[in-house]
Amino acid sequence: MNPLADDRFRKAGTSRSFTAAARTRAGLRTVEEHELPDLAGLDMEIFAGDAYPYFVLRQLFDVHGDRLKVVDDGSELCGYVLVATRQGGNRSWILGLGTRKRCRGLGYGRRLMAEAVRMCAADGVHEVRLTVDPANTAAVQLYESFGFARDHHRDDYFGPGESRLIMTLTLARPTPDRQPP
């Protein structure tokens, strides 16, 4: 399906050319500290009851701020990804990835995931993991398109009734002749 040809992916009253232009000018960058309230609002819109409390986002920014990337279309934050690497650098977790409803279907989630995988590969990480609501088929399909495999299902992962699918991507280890991009 071409998302530009489907009205569900266009802001009300906008044209296809506006949507294409917005996608073209949207920038992928590291979030800035003064944007944390906007990021918290974005996280709440995306994940509702599963959103990070502001104080947790604040601490994640302090610890992993260089791994907290956003897509900004010039008017607001449209999506974000947060990557955390375990001590020793062997395994990374994608702790959050999502896009604002009005920004879905524009490839922002794919751009964010590509950046997350690129960062992990550049850091020499061997394994990337994430959790996803098993009912979120669009997200599961996105992750599978990047090579993530369904590792296992965990009932009550985030508490009673909050099951998650654990997915894993194995990255090639860099050799002395071949460095990550």
Rank of each mutant, 00 (worst) to 15 (best):
K101C: 08
G96F: 05
C120F: 03
L142M: 06
V125N: 12
A114S: 10
F146M: 00
G161A: 11
P134R: 12
Y157R: 00
V140N: 01
G107E: 08
Y157H: 08
H152T: 06
Y108W: 15
V117S: 07
E162A: 09
D133F: 00
L112V: 04
R150I: 03
D156F: 14
R150E: 09
Y143R: 04
P160K: 15
C103M: 14
T99V: 12
R164C: 05
A114N: 08
A116L: 10
R100F: 08
P134V: 15
H126P: 00
E127K: 12
T99F: 01
A135R: 15
A135F: 11
P134C: 14
G147T: 12
S145Y: 03
Y157I: 00
A116I: 15
V125K: 12
G107P: 00
L130A: 00
M119H: 11
G105A: 14
D123S: 15
R118A: 14
A116M: 12
Q141W: 03
P134S: 09
M119G: 10
V132S: 11
R150A: 07
P134A: 09
L142F: 04
V128H: 02
I94H: 02
A149Q: 12
L97V: 11
L165I: 03
T137F: 11
A149W: 02
R154F: 03
F146P: 00
L97S: 01
R118I: 04
G147E: 07
R154M: 09
L97E: 05
P160D: 07
A138D: 12
E115Q: 14
I94A: 01
G147M: 09
G109C: 11
A122G: 14
R129Y: 13
F158N: 08
G96H: 03
E144N: 02
R154S: 07
D123W: 03
G107V: 06
E127C: 05
G107N: 01
L130F: 01
V132K: 09
C103E: 07
D156H: 10
I94Q: 01
G147N: 10
H153D: 02
A138S: 14
G124S: 07
Q141E: 09
R118V: 05
E144S: 02
L106S: 11
A139M: 03
Y157S: 06
H152D: 03
F148Q: 02
L142K: 02
R111A: 14
A116K: 05
E144H: 02
L95Q: 08
H152Q: 06
G107L: 01
A121V: 04
A135G: 15
A149H: 04
V132F: 13
G109M: 08
L142A: 05
M119V: 13
Y143D: 08
V117P: 07
T137P: 00
V128M: 14
P134N: 13
R102V: 15
L130Q: 02
N136V: 07
R104D: 07
R102F: 07
R100E: 04
Y143G: 07
M113L: 15
A138N: 11
L95D: 01
G96R: 00
L142C: 05
L106T: 04
R154T: 11
T131S: 13
V140S: 02
Y157L: 01
P134M: 10
G159P: 08
K101I: 13
H152P: 01
A114I: 13
R118K: 12
D151F: 09
G98W: 00
V140H: 01
R118W: 11
V140Y: 02
G109V: 05
E127D: 13
L112D: 08
G96M: 03
F148D: 01
G161H: 04
